[in-house]
Simulated scan of single mutants.
Amino acid sequence: MELVFDGHNDVLLRLWRTMRNGGDPVREFAEGTCEGHIDGPRARAGGLAGGLCAIYIPSGDLILQEPDLNGHYVTPLAAPLERTPSLDIALEKFSIALKLDRAKAWAICRTVPEIEAAMRDGIFACVLHMEGCEAIGHDLAALDVFHAAGLRSLGPVWSRHNIFGYGVPFAYPMSPDTAPGLTNVGFDLVRACDRLGIVIDLAHITEKGFWDVAKTSTNPLVASHSNVHALTAVARNLTDKQMDAIRETKGLVGLNYAVTMLRPDARDDARTPLDLMVRHIDYMVERMGIDCVALGSDFDGATVPEEIHDAAGNQKLVAALKNAGYGQEDLIKLCRTNWLRIFSQTWR
């Protein structure tokens, strides 16, 4: 079994909803559930040894638009969120993460040696990530507090606009060049992340925002859960030019398992073969090199291929990559060590 460190999941969103409905999120993760994609037992069964766990503030019931007769769709951007309720939700999710850590259901990791130790000990290595920074104000004071609590990665925006910048919609076919980039305080956020050693995730930002980060940050460029626009022309995927810039900074792209970002028709259909996942990996490896590609499943945040189904099926992708000709050294890089390299280069 090849151990996997995954670049993106939304398990904290699911556990937060469990808590809001009166359930026990620690028990659900530790003992397992039939809900969603990730819990401790299924992670162990599929070799999912750790990952970036997103603190994401939901935008109501945003539902992907149905395709028209041509297969095209544009889902309107979610409305901007208010800061105070966003901060409340972020703190609730941080609390769940800390309770899981105290219960030894997972280990919050702030350094690469801590990740490596958790993986050796068979404990899920959680790295805390913020997907959209609505919980952080103009003065960035909350960023220092979140960093001290364990935050090691963030995306300035989700697929909505905020005080830091502009997000791309869920739309097909569409270029990622849909709106402006970073705001003035967004540039301040990027510089603060560089100072603290926080990975900046470009997964949901507009193309202009991507280039704004590229000209401001001194760290490797990272898109934690994105795929190839040339293969699936959704606004969330990366252009060749963007991937070239990631290669030049020795950055990283994590393959998103979301079927809408894998299929040529971008439909939300779980009957999506694994060879499409391999095709996106092949394209990225050819464009950027094996050191710049990893996995970013989007478990608990998207529809994934039915053959994988959940975290327990993760080794089916590993097997498909092996059958496609990837050797042991390459699989180790794709599955975990490329992420650890990025952390080593970015974290202070």
Rank of each mutant, 00 (worst) to 15 (best):
V74D: 12
D240R: 08
Y56A: 12
F170L: 13
F164C: 01
G150Q: 06
V145S: 04
G40S: 14
R27H: 10
A233E: 13
Q242D: 09
I200S: 02
A214I: 01
L231I: 14
S344P: 00
L12C: 09
A266K: 08
L202V: 04
P273V: 04
N314E: 00
T260L: 00
L77I: 06
D194I: 06
G150M: 09
G32W: 12
P67I: 10
T33E: 01
A49I: 06
H129F: 06
N256K: 08
L143E: 07
C335A: 13
A233R: 15
Q242E: 15
L100G: 13
V168T: 15
L317R: 07
T183N: 02
D101N: 15
Y257T: 03
E92M: 09
W211E: 03
K316Y: 12
A148K: 13
V157Q: 03
I198C: 06
I38Q: 03
I205Q: 00
T337R: 13
E92L: 01
H37Y: 11
D144R: 14
G150T: 12
H225G: 10
E307V: 15
I281P: 01
V11I: 15
L143I: 10
D61C: 08
D139W: 04
L100H: 11
A118M: 07
R271L: 09
T216P: 04
V112C: 05
A49H: 09
F170N: 13
P113H: 03
Y56C: 01
V213W: 02
G254W: 05
S217Y: 04
L238I: 08
Q315E: 06
D310A: 09
A245S: 13
